[in-house]
Structure formats: structure tokens, C-alpha cells
Design a protein around this nucleic acid. Sequence first.
DNA 1: GACTGGCACTCGCTACAGTCGAGTGCCAGC
DNA 2: GCTGGCACTCGACTGTAGCGAGTGCCAGTC
Lengths: 340, 340
Amino acid sequence: MGLDDRKLAVLRAIVEDYVATQEPVGSKALVERHQLGVSPATVRNDMAVLEEEGYIRQPHTSAGRVPTDRGYRLFVDRLSRVKPLSPAERRAIERFLVGAVDLDDVVHRTVRLLAQLTRQVAVVQYPSLARSKVRHLELVPISTTRLMVVMIADTGRVEQRLVELPAPVPADDVTDLRRLVNEKLVGCQLAETPPLVQALVEESAPHLRPAMTTLSTVLLETLVERHEERLALAGQANLTRGGLLDFQGSLRPILEALEEEVVLLKLIGETEPSTTRVLIGDENEFDNLRAASVVSTGYGPGSTIVGGLGVLGPTRMDYPGNIAMVRAVARYVGELLAQN
Amino acid sequence: MGLDDRKLAVLRAIVEDYVATQEPVGSKALVERHQLGVSPATVRNDMAVLEEEGYIRQPHTSAGRVPTDRGYRLFVDRLSRVKPLSPAERRAIERFLVGAVDLDDVVHRTVRLLAQLTRQVAVVQYPSLARSKVRHLELVPISTTRLMVVMIADTGRVEQRLVELPAPVPADDVTDLRRLVNEKLVGCQLAETPPLVQALVEESAPHLRPAMTTLSTVLLETLVERHEERLALAGQANLTRGGLLDFQGSLRPILEALEEEVVLLKLIGETEPSTTRVLIGDENEFDNLRAASVVSTGYGPGSTIVGGLGVLGPTRMDYPGNIAMVRAVARYVGELLAQN
DNA sequence: GACTGGCACTCGCTACAGTCGAGTGCCAGC
DNA sequence: GCTGGCACTCGACTGTAGCGAGTGCCAGTC
């Protein structure tokens, strides 16, 4: 059952060659391209064992071997080191991210950069509101019964929402409301807000109470519970790389999955331990993505995590390279956010 | 040269059949499915003329006919009526758009709705800032040398930008700045702003001038000149509909084009005359989209136009249906915006 | 006992030939 | 001007054959 070092080396070689050439790799080609120090026949025996253990498989009887999801998993866990970035890549990252003027800009640049570097589909989650603190709340009267609430978070995120008030509210009262909500909520994590918002209603003067009630409802509903998460996506054209060989001929399920925010959030949404996560093939829970792998990690200023980012591509991807890039980009973005 | 009525009827029948079946249509099948009142041989003669004139072509010698871009153009211009929406479609539109809470919500719902109704890729441009009026400008101090500028437009759009001030500015001065910019700019079309912003700097008190200068630069740069346009996209999975027959086997160029905001803006960006625009195949200026058609129109509250929306799909698309849906959706969105 | 060279075998891929049939263009006749 | 008839074209499909990459197995060697 034990896989000795050479068998592991064979597996590594198979993965590397297959990722590079996209063609099933045979024993002869293997010994030619890698210094294994043994003959093709020996490699064949090792391959037979690897196949029995489920790490590789033969698409057809007379074809070479291809790694299975399990094979990639072993490769990622034990056979590969994170590839250091080339100076050119480092420079590309810096050049790309320098000069971003606001959060939107940072996110868009990041997602494009990631797509370009990895040549995969890139996904970046905006800093999660749940993990942000309120920096400022602005109330802008649109009419006497309408208020635009603008929340600015310390992560740079800005969310707005229109509030329909139950009754007209004079300008002075708006000023009071503004002062009150800011006094109470600035500096708070949004996730911990609900009791505070509740208290806000109870403490406010009677004539403000109706307005404050709807205001608080909206705050809770929109900013905490509802669509609070946002995503940016780029590099979908990269899915067509490698012809139709990846994804067994149909991009449809993949494209569909990419349109579902919920799916993407589950995939790259910030994971508690701040480590890089790799989901290979059917390890992820979505049928549509059985032919895809995801490399993701969390990012944030300093050592905190405020959101996730990652790439999605065929199981046949350059894991060490992609892991390195995802991590590097996450770190740079974190630094960028820390500057604000 | 003249195309008599029957030849036009033949062309119409070819387009309709081809759109429905996605297969080259022959003379026999045509007379079977449509009441043309003549024999296949006659139809063949008509087809020969239509082909000579460039309205249809034969993929292979022994195959039926397929419309050319020019054929579709004639069909759209003279042979089709806009298909009235079914009650179910009408209801779908209303149900989908009711309950939108803010502009983002409206745009996202709209783009999804359009993708779902037409089964094509849908694109919606956010209300153009150039065509919006300033409703309010908010300055939020982030630190003594940093200001977050939040602009709220009458179309509901909210844009923000971080401003790095040349020197620390006390809170009172921020209040003054806020009052000044709002006094001068609220109610203005952003496109007409530059001279006003200029004046703003000149009229402000000396101690405010440095801050006002950077502020005005940022206002002009970010809100007027730069990335002011935003887009939402949905339904990319619909590109895979119809296998690989459309788009001659590769989605790549299409997906690439869809990632270029500039391209999409040129395609669906609000067009001066508020009419529906149809771009067929190589009528559009982008090589990547030679195999695609675009149906787009402007939308806005009342009779004004603040942005564009549309769908993109294979040249082989249901033009009358898509035109109807694009128009209907645009009208509903316009009404929705008018309510604000 | 582990490795190796040799060998028979498998099977997908390509090329080629042959058949089928949808669809055409043309022409003579009504 | 329309129609039926007819010869023709050519792509799609099928079956066959040869090739070659790659395998599994086995006997032989260090």
C-alpha cells in the first residue's frame, strides 16, 4: 500500500507533464523528460500501482495516464512546493495595484491582475460588511419622506439604500437622526450592530421614533442581512483556453455557476483559518463545478481577514503557481488596504 | 434587382425557419412549412436571386440556405413586426422589478430579467453620470488629510472617491467646503460642471483654496472624465445555448469582448435618438463580435435617456422577440426610475 | 528481490473508399 | 411565369485497414 519515494516522483512527474502538455503521459515520455533513473518498464509497474490506488487513470486502454482528482490532491498536499514568483510577476503586481484610487478600483484591478497572472477565472470578494466597522453614516434627504442612507465602512466600502419614511421628517430632525446614529454606531462591527440599533430606537426622542424605527429596520435588513456581499469577476475568457478539452466539452455548467453569487461566495468566501484553500474537482460541493478546481485565500489589512479572493480553472491547472500568485496578490491587497 | 413580394416572403420564411431550427433550410421544407402557394422549384429560383443579391448563402453546395447578415438586416428592417409580449412575459417583468430597493438592485434585477427573458447575454449600463444631476455631495473626513467624497446623483447613482489633501484641514473647514460645493453644484448636470468647479476654486476663501483645488481636481477627474460609466452583465451561460454551432465553435472572442467595458459601452451605450438599435454581425465595429448581434435601446425616466441596455447573442437570434423585450424592459425601468 | 529488455496485445486515430440523400441548377413543357 | 423532372454535387455517415503509442507480462540479469 505504501507509496515509496519513486512512485511519488512518478506521480509528480505525471502531474507536471500533464498540466504542461494537456496530453495523457506515457512511461517512455516520462523517463525521457525526467531523471527518474529507471527504465520505462519500471515506471509502468509503478504506474500500475498508482492506478490501483486511484491516483491516476487511463482514458483509454492504449493511452497514457492522467491524474485523478485524488492524484492532484496528493500532489498539492505532499509533492509540490509553492512556486516563488518571478521578479517580473512581482513587478506586475506592484505596477497593477499602485495608483488605485478607491476600493472599487482596488477590487477591479485586483481581479483583473489575478486573471491575467494565473490565466484563470479570478474572483474577488469585496471586504465583507460583517467584518467591517462603521466609519460614518450619512443621511441625505431626497424628499421630506425619503432618505438616502450612505454607510461608509473602515474597509472603504460604501453602501447606500433609499429609505421610505412613514411620515415627513423636517431637516432638523434629519440632523438629529444623523448625529444619533453616528454617535452610537461609528466604530462598531456591523455584525454586532443589531442590539445597538435596537437600543437606538428606544433611546431616541418620541418625535424621532417612527423615523428611527424604519431607519433601523433598513440598516439591519440591508446592511447586515441582505445582499451585503459583493463580488468581482474577471478572466472568463480564460475558460476557453485549452480548447474544449477541459470541462469535457461544455462551458455551460461553469458559466452558470459563475453567475451565482452564492456559489462563488461559498467557494472563495473568507475562510476562518487564514490559510490558502485548494478545492480539487469534486471536492467542492457543486455539481456544476466537478470539473473545476478553486484556489482561494483570505485577505485583509495586517493579519485580519476581511474578504476572500481566488481563481477557478480546470482541475488540470498549475497548482503551485496559482497558489503562489493567489497568496502574493492577497498579501499585496492586504497591504494596500492597511494604508487606508 | 427588384425583390418582389414573394421573394421577400421566401426570405422571411428562411430567416424564421433558420432561427427556429438552426439548420440550413431547403426549398422543399420551406413550401411544406409555409403557405407560399408555389412549388419548390419556383422557390429555388427565388432563392438563387436572393443569393445573388447577398441576402442568403449556401454553407455547402448540397446544403440548404442560411441568411447572411445582410439578409437579417433586410428582415429586421422590412419583414418583421415587433412581436407583442405575452401576458406571462409582462407579468414576469413586473414581478421581477417590483420591490427593488435601490439603483444597484434595479440594475441587477433588470439585467437578470433581460437575460432570462431573451435567453441571451444581457447588458445594462448604469445611468450615465454625464446625464445625471448632482443631488448631493457629501464630504466625510477619514483623517485630517483624507476626505471621502460621496456624490449622490438624481438618478440614484452614488459614487465615492478618496481624496488625499495637500495639508491637514480642520473639521470646520470641511463643513465650509461641503456647504460651498453643494451650494454651487447641486442640481447641475455633471457634464456641464467643469466651469462651475473652476469658479468654485476661485471664489473660495484663501485658507480653503488648496483643499478646494485638489477636491475640484478629483471631482472633475473621477466623476466626469474617468471610469464614470458602469455596467452590469448577465446570462453569459446563454452563449453556450445551441452548442457550438453559433460563434463558429469558439466563445473565446465573445467572452473577451464582454470583459471590455469600453466595447460594451460602445455597443449599448445610450444612443442619441431614443430608438431601438440593432447591430447585426459585422455591422458592429469589433472583430471579436463579427458573429454576434446586439439589440439595444436607451432608457430613462419619462422621455429622457440616462443609459442604455440591451442583449447580445448569435446573429441567428429572434430579432422581433428580442426587440420587443428590450423595449419593454427599458420602458419599465424608465417608469421605475421616474418614481424616484 | 528489484530492475530491465523484449514482446504480444490493445485500441484510438487517420486515411480511404463507398453509399446515401438532401438539396441544387437547369430545362423542357404547360 | 410557374412547374415537374432529371442529372449532378457534395457533405454525412459507414466500414475497413494500417499505424503507432502505450500497455502488461515475463523471462533474464545484477
